[in-house]
Design a protein around this nucleic acid. Structure first.
Lengths: 193, 193
DNA sequence: GTCTATAGCGAGATAGAC
DNA sequence: GTCTATCTCGCTATAGAC
C-alpha cells in the first residue's frame, strides 16, 4: 500500500513547485514507485491533488479546534498568544499548512472553484470560534468594550501577518520580532485603559 | 515593437498561472504575435520573466517612495492610513503588485535566489522609510514612546494582513472591515493614553 | 497493485526565409 | 523583427503482461 507515500511526496512537491510545477514522475520517484503506479491509487493528477488538499484541510482544522477545546478560555491573553505560537508550530513541524496557504492564495486555475469552497469553509469556522471567544470575554468585561467582530478581524490580521512572515520564511529573528511587535500593539489596542 | 505587449501579456499570465503554469504560446497569442517571435526580444522564458519582475519591482517601489515624498509627515495618523489605502489602490489598479506578491511568496524554484535578492531589497527600503518616519514622531512625542522598530514591525504587520486579504480577493466588504478593525486596534495600541 | 511499453500532446527552443 | 517549419523533451494518461 504505497498510497500514503504517494500522498506525502505529492504534498512535498505541490508545496515546493505548485500544482503545475510538480510532476508525477518526481512524486513517484520520491514515493519509490513508477509513475504509472500512481494511477492504481488515484484517477489522475487532479484526484491526487484534491485528496492531498482535503488531508491538509483536515489536519489544519483539527489542530486548531483541538487547541481551543483544550484551553479553557480562562486566560485570554495567554490563550490568544498561544494560538499564534500554535500557528508557527504547525507551519514549522509539518508541510500541511504551507501547502494549504499556497493553494489558498494561488490555486491552480481549473480547480479554483473547488478549492475556494474548502478555503471559505475553514475561514468561517476559525472566525466563528474566535468571535464566540471574544464575546465571552466582552461579557466578562475583560477587554475593551467593542464588537466581537472587530476584535476577531484585528486578531485574524495578526495571524495573517505571522503566516505571511512564515511563508517568506528566511529569517527566524525577524519572525520573532514581528510577532512580538504585532502582539504587543494588538494587546495594548484592545485592553481597557 | 511588440516588446511591451509581450511583457504585459506575460505579467498577466504569470500572475494568474504562476511561472510554470504560464506558457509562451498563451502569452504570444495575447500579445498578438507568434510564440517564436518572443525570442527576438528575450533570450527565453527566464529572461522574459526576470524583466517583468524588475518592472514590477520598479513600479511598486516608485509608487511607495513617491507617496512618502508627497505627504509631509505632518499628520501621522492620516499618512499611515493613507499608505494602507495606497497599497489597496496599487493592487486593484494594475497587476504589478499581485504579480510581485505571488513571486515573493512562491517563487519558481530555479530562480528563487535571484528573486529573493530583489524581495529583500524592497522590504529593507520600505522598512527604513517607515522607521525614519516613526522616529520623527517619537522625537516629537506624538505617539507612544517606544522603539521605532517595534512600531514599524507592527505597522508592517497591518500592511501584510491587508495584502493577504487582497490576495484572497473575493470579498470587498470583508476587506473593508478587516482594514478598519486592524487600523483601529493598531492606532489605539500605539497612541499615548 | 505494480510493472513495461507507448500513445498523444504541448512545452521551450532553434534555423532560416523574407 | 516577424514569420513558417521543425526539433527535442517531458508531461499526463492508457493498455496490457504478470
Amino acid at each position: 500500500m504505497k498510497s500514503k507515500e504517494i500522498k506525502d511526496a505529492a504534498l512535498k512537491y505541490f508545496t515546493i513547485h505548485g500544482y503545475e510545477g510538480a510532476s508525477l514522475s518526481q512524486i513517484a520517484e520520491e514515493a519509490g514507485v513508477k509513475k504509472q503506479s500512481i494511477y492504481a491509487h488515484f484517477k489522475g493528477k487532479d484526484d491526487l491533488f484534491l485528496q492531498v488538499l482535503r488531508d491538509a484541510k483536515e489536519t489544519e482544522l483539527s489542530s486548531k479546534l483541538q487547541y481551543f477545546n483544550h484551553v479553557g478560555s480562562q486566560n485570554p491573553k495567554e490563550d490568544l498568544y498561544g494560538y499564534l505560537r500554535l500557528a508557527i508550530d504547525l507551519f514549522q513541524k509539518n508541510e500541511h499548512l504551507k501547502f494549504w496557504l499556497r493553494m489558498s492564495f494561488f490555486p491552480p486555475a481549473h480547480l479554483a472553484k473547488e478549492i475556494e469552497k474548502e478555503v471559505i469553509d475553514i475561514i468561517e469556522k476559525e472566525q466563528r470560534i474566535l468571535e464566540s471567544i471574544f464575546q465571552t470575554w466582552l461579557d466578562a468585561k475583560v477587554i475593551a468594550d467593542n464588537l466581537a467582530k472587530t476584535l476577531t478581524y484585528a486578531f485574524l490580521g495578526v495571524v495573517d501577518s505571522i503566516m505571511l512572515e512564515l511563508v517568506y520564511g528566511n529569517d527566524e529573528k525577524r519572525l520573532k520580532e514581528k510577532l512580538e511587535a504585532s502582539w504587543t500593539v494588538f494587546w495594548r489596542g484592545i485592553s481597557l485603559q
